[in-house]
Design a protein around this nucleic acid. Structure first.
Length: 879
RNA sequence: GGGCGAUUAGCUCAGUUGGUUAGAGCGUUACAUUGACAUUGUAAAGGUCAGUGGUUCGAGUCCACUAUCGCCCACCA
């Protein structure tokens, strides 16, 4: 990989060296914290959010990988025992669905045709085949994660953790099996968690039926067979007389008896103000039914067909049944009217988009409200709220804490059983006929444990667990739990959880809930939520819009470093990032710039090498670049600790391009003999950049120091106090040069033309030693610097601070234009002076503002006055 | 219905607890090929910080309201 001097290409070719560099890193073993050099007391860990095992890299992954790799590289260089643990997720429903789709398309079979065992085998084969795709793509981003600790949610170890967690929670009464209303997806043939349901607006007829003395409204007539209770609002004067009565009403299948109950669940203004309740197929009605002890009847079954409760209509599908019911009621003259233009939100499955059927089913649930012994009576929900409320866990940006609280406060029991086959099987076995325990009405014997019980006749629960149940254990199941491993002790709680805000509920909340209970600790100290990547116009990226950017393509075209920078700089946590290819190309240009600065140093320095000893400055420019670097190191380190990645990137970018390349390297060409300082500055700069752009920095580093890998180089430190005088003094030199360039440009003096300049300045002592630099960079033939003197007439002029600059080029001056320019400048200065005067003549300002602020304003006033006076004089000399 | 966010240069966005004449990149204009870099350099133009009111000596920043856009949650029986 290392190239000899002189062979370094003019343009940085990312794609031709990145893979080789990654290989060198991986083979070094340094991604593994156990193999890092030196004594490392502090540990720092990140559990990588596991991509789907069958997925491919997209920009969402790219963002998380860029940020997490940045943090872990910074920590590793700062001397931490840094672990970034990678893995993949089996993504139960998603993968199950994917394989089912393949089956359908290739052999036109369903999972039921194959049978459970063959189907699961099929899925596992599929995973093994595609697993490497995603992990290799993760490598393409430069991710320095410890592959020796890679985990997969269906690993034996993790599966054991899942079973252990289930069993423990069951025995503590936090997991129960019950007939409750759940979201059912008829297509997936499985339950869904509340947050796996999405909503779609749709138009549907809304029916008003006569139900005894009241009119009730519904969009779902086919569920109404068993409605035997009318709910009215206690304050609704229209129905006061009915409350508490039992009425006989004519209904779909004939006459039934209906009770009237008053409850605030109804709204007076809504429809007729009265409603019947359908406990089996509505969440709200189910709760009401429990409250009033109303029997729950199942009208629709798991296949989406009507049950025996529908009498003659049993077996019909939902759509047909709806028509039939309406026809029956019409024939009985019980239809009041129909609103054809009713819009409502239809619940659909987040995976397949099928309408979700709320129905009552026997499922496993996590009880989030039960008091937990080891929490002294606090519930899972309360404990999960507490650890964020008391700042044990910090969420960045902070506003998401509110969102988290709101969600957690309203959390209902979590349905964790799924009827798909791929996933962690529920660790529960049943046996009939030998009932030892009276489990309510059931004569069934039940065993809950991590492995199959001994004895005959046990069958395991056919269901699998919600994929988020295993994800909830991710931070510690990956470290060996339930065993008390060294890793668990060393790296848990993890330091940082970094992920998109879109899975705050799905995942972050579940991890907090599971971890606080199972290991009585927090899963992570800080949560950093990044935004979603959108296209340049802020639209969601989608295949149909053809606006997607594939990170693998941009890595190939612009390099992983440029791709990473485009996702980190200019982005803020929690806010979406609009990304276009132009932005990535821009950072490719920057990476090339860094490459070429290095190339220049490698070509001109006699013995290029890394240097950590801060050299003694010989000139003002030396002192300045060292001071700027000191300042950069301090602010970068400080801001990285605060997770202000973008700000740090911008600062280092500015230093690299606007200070080092634009000024110091140019000065070095004039002053010469800068080998030590150039080596030192480059060394420190490569280190600062490394967490952001690991590949190019390592490539350059290897040219300077083939004996060491940059990934384990020590993070820059500086003991030097930032020298403000040096910054100001060289600042003046820069300003003078810029002012002269500006005058030349405005007066269209050819760039090649060498001219003379006269500088009159009280700071001549500072400027005089810099005469060579000024002459060269401002392209002057002759330069005169005096402390006081007469203003030359017929000269272009400018004022910087208290310094006057004159270019006596009488033959080239356009008096009119020059007068105009100076007058405009004077006018602007005048306005500024006025605002300063106004501010300072305000007694309250002088009295109340801090003394230093007032002092600074006074100094500004003084300086501006002086400057204005000089410009006025310059104006006079023109005429 | 409840909550959150955004609105700053032509475009994409920074702006940390209120305190330099509000910044960057891209784009635009003019000039340039000087010992690394045209994926370059030099210089410039470009902003009533969405609007209104308030707090304050001082507001892009804090508060209230309005407008537009976006997101999340709940859900209409």
């Amino acid at each position: 990989m290392a190239m000899k001097q002189g062979e370094i290409s003019k343009v940085y070719q990312a794609s031709s060296i990145e893979d080789a560099i990654y290989k060198t890193w991986e083979e070094s073993g340094f991604f593994n914290p156990d193999k890092l050099p030196g004594q490392r007391k502090k540990s720092f860990s990140i559990a990588m959010p596991p991509p789907n095992a069958t997925g491919t890299l997209h920009l969402g992954h790219a963002v998380m990988l860029a940020i997490q790799d940045l943090v872990i590289r910074y920590q590793r260089m700062s001397g931490a025992k840094a672990l970034w643990l990678p893995g993949t997720d089996h993504a139960a429903i998603a993968t199950n669905a994917k394989v089912e789709k393949i089956l359908k398309e290739t052999v036109n079979k369903t999972r039921f045709d194959l049978g459970r065992e063959a189907f699961v085998q099929r899925v596992n084969d599929f995973i093994i085949e595609s697993q490497n795709t995603i992990t290799n793509q993760v490598r393409k981003m430069g991710s320095s994660c410890d592959w020796s600790r890679q985990r997969y949610t269906l690993d034996a170890g993790l599966s054991n953790a899942v079973a252990t967690a289930f069993v423990e929670m069951y025995h503590d009464g936090l997991i129960y099996r019950g007939e409750r209303i759940v979201n059912w997806c008829p297509h997936c043939a499985s339950t869904l968690a509340d947050d796996e349901v999405e909503y779609q607006e749709e138009q549907t007829p809304f029916y008003y039926f006569k139900y005894g003395p009241v009119v009730i409204g519904t969009a779902r007539p086919e569920t109404k067979f068993g409605d035997k209770v009318i709910i009215v609002h206690p304050n609704d004067s229209r129905y006061q007389a009915l409350v508490g009565q039992e009425l006989e009403v004519d209904w779909i299948l004939g006459k039934i008896k209906a009770r009237v109950i008053a409850d605030e669940a109804t709204e007076i203004d809504m429809g007729s103000g009265a409603m019947t309740i359908t406990p089996g197929h509505s969440f709200i009605d189910f709760e009401l039914a429990q409250k009033y002890g109303i029997p729950i009847e199942k009208i629709i079954d798991e296949q989406g067909k009507l049950t025996a409760a529908a009498g003659t209509l049993a077996g019909l599908d939902v759509k047909t049944a709806r028509q039939k019911v309406v026809e029956i009621l019409q024939s009985k003259n019980l239809v009041d009217h129909i609103d054809e233009n009713y819009t409502h939100n239809l619940s659909v499955c987040y995976r397949c988009g099928t309408a979700v059927e709320p129905l009552v089913s026997k499922q496993w649930f996590v009880n989030v409200n039960a008091p937990v012994k080891k929490f002294k009576g606090q519930s899972l929900k309360e404990r999960s709220l507490a650890v964020v409320r008391n700042n044990e866990i910090k969420i960045i940006p902070e506003r998401f804490e509110k969102t988290y609280f709101h969600w957690m406060e309203n959390l209902r029991d979590w349905c964790i059983s799924r009827q798909i086959w791929f996933g962690h099987r529920i660790p529960v076995w049943y046996r009939n006929g030998k009932a030892q325990i009276a489990n309510g009405k059931s004569s069934e014997e039940i065993y809950v444990g991590v492995s199959k019980p001994t004895g005959e006749g046990w069958t395991q629960d056919p269901d699998t667990l919600d994929t988020w149940f295993s994800s909830g254990l991710w931070t510690f199941s990956t470290l060996g739990w339930p065993e008390q491993t060294v890793d668990l002790k060393t790296f848990h709680p993890t330091s940082l959880m970094e992920t998109g805000y879109d899975i705050l509920f799905f995942w972050i909340a579940r991890m907090i809930l599971m971890t606080t209970y199972l290991i009585e600790d927090i899963p992570f100290e800080t949560v950093y939520l990044h935004g979603l990547v959108r296209d340049e116009q802020g639209r969601k990226m989608s295949k149909s819009l053809e606006n997607t950017i594939n990170p693998l393509d941009t890595i190939a075209k612009y390099g992983a470093d440029a791709t990473r920078l485009s996702l980190i700089i200019g982005t803020t946590p929690g806010n979406d990032v609009n990304l276009g290819e132009a932005k990535i190309a821009g950072y490719r240009n920057f990476v090339n710039k860094l490459w070429n600065i290095s190339r220049y140093i490698l070509m001109t320095v006699e013995n290029p090498q890394t240097l950590d000893q801060r050299p003694q400055p010989k000139t003002l420019a030396d002192a300045w670049i060292l001071a700027e670097l000191d300042l950069l190191i301090v602010t970068a380190t400080d801001n990285l600790d605060k997770y202000n990645f973008s700000a740090v990137g911008e600062k280092i970018y500015e230093f690299t391009w606007s200070k080092l390349a634009d000024w110091y390297v140019e000065v070095a060409k004039i002053e010469k003999e800068k080998d030590e300082i150039l080596c030192y500055v480059l060394t420190q700069l490569l280190k600062l950049w490394h967490p952001f752009t690991p590949f190019v920095t390592e490539a350059i580093w290897q040219e300077l120091n083939p004996a060491e890998l940059l990934i384990v180089a020590a993070w820059p430190q500086t003991s030097a106090k930032v020298d403000k005088n040096v910054l100001n003094d060289f600042g003046l030199v820069k300003d003078v040069i810029t002012a002269i360039r500006n005058l030349r440009s405005e007066s269209k003096i050819a760039a090649g033309k060498k001219i003379k300049a006269i500088i009159i300045s009280k700071q001549a002592k500072i400027l005089t030693p810099q005469a060579e630099i000024i002459k060269s960079l401002a392209r002057l033939q002759d330069l005169e610097i005096v402390e006081t003197g007469d203003q030359p007439s017929q000269a272009l002029s400018a004022v910087v601070g208290g310094t006057e600059i004159y270019l006596p080029v009488s033959d080239m001056i356009d008096i009119e234009q020059e007068t105009k320019r100076l007058t405009a400048e004077a006018q602007q200065l005048n306005n500024y002076l006025e605002s300063l005067n106004k501010k300072l003549s305000n007694k309250d300002f002088v009295k109340r503002a801090p003394a230093e602020v007032v002092k600074a304003e006074m100094a500004k006033l003084e300086a501006s006055r002086e400057q204005l006076a000089k410009i006025s004089e310059q104006l006079k000399t023109l005429t």
